[in-house]
């Protein structure tokens, strides 16, 4: 059992970090906790002796994606939102738990071959025999980049869409209501909405 201990620890770290990522107040904190999840998963993958995936997960999942997220948060800005979800938590929780319950019921006889850590270390040939996958990946990257350029291209002046004003007003009201509920946090609605003004970002030219 003792050799299981690192796995248990990592598992707990992953889940804890994921919960923090979900519950964190600011987007930035969420992004950092997500990076932690990613790093811990990379460790776990490494312990399952899939070394290459571990490396990629660490560099792309924990590194690149976090940087992108932080960049996006920097461009878009954080936005404090009241924490009333659209879908009642009860419904969300019910469906997730129900699916989990059915899956675990369905796969009761699901036996994995128990592997003591560190077999099959011959996973060293990059994309061995899966060249077509690699090529399609190139297509995905091409489309993704073109999509990125296309979506962000030549933005008009911010807030020229009439909904924006409406939205801002409604959000202010909501924040006010939130405040009234928790009286000991003094913050004026003005300051809240000022924070949400979009920072000027350079338009990405194509």
């Amino acid at each position: 059992m003792l050799e299981m201990l690192p796995f248990f620890l990592i598992a707990i770290i992953i889940l804890y970090a994921a919960i923090r990522a979900l519950r964190a107040e600011g987007l930035l904190m969420s992004a950092l906790w997500l990076a932690a999840v990613s790093a811990a998963i990379a460790t776990m993958i490494y312990m399952l002796s899939a070394n290459q995936v571990a490396v990629i997960e660490l560099s792309v999942g924990a590194g690149l994606v976090t940087i992108l997220l932080i960049f996006a948060i920097g461009v878009a800005g954080d936005e404090p939102l009241s924490d009333t979800p659209v879908v009642p938590r009860v419904i969300a929780g019910f469906f997730v738990l129900a699916c989990a319950a059915i899956i675990s019921f369905a796969v009761r006889p699901f036996e994995l071959i128990a592997v003591e850590g560190g077999i099959s270390t011959h996973g060293s040939i990059f994309m061995q025999g899966r060249d077509i996958d690699l090529l399609v990946q190139v297509v995905v990257i091409f489309s993704g980049v073109l999509g990125l350029v296309g979506i962000l291209a030549e933005a008009r002046a911010p807030l020229d869409y009439p909904v924006a004003g409406e939205v801002a007003a409604r959000r202010d009201q909501e924040l006010l209501a939130m405040e009234q509920r928790s009286e000991h946090i003094p913050a004026s609605p003005d300051s809240a909405s000022k924070e949400t003004l979009i920072p000027d970002s350079p338009a990405v030219d194509d």
Binding site: Q128, G129, R130, D131, I132, D133
Partner: peptide, 10 residues
């Protein structure tokens, strides 16, 4: 008809 390249085929 099929076309194999590497370990995979279309």
């Amino acid at each position: 008809a099929d076309f194999t390249w590497g370990g995979m085929s279309l």
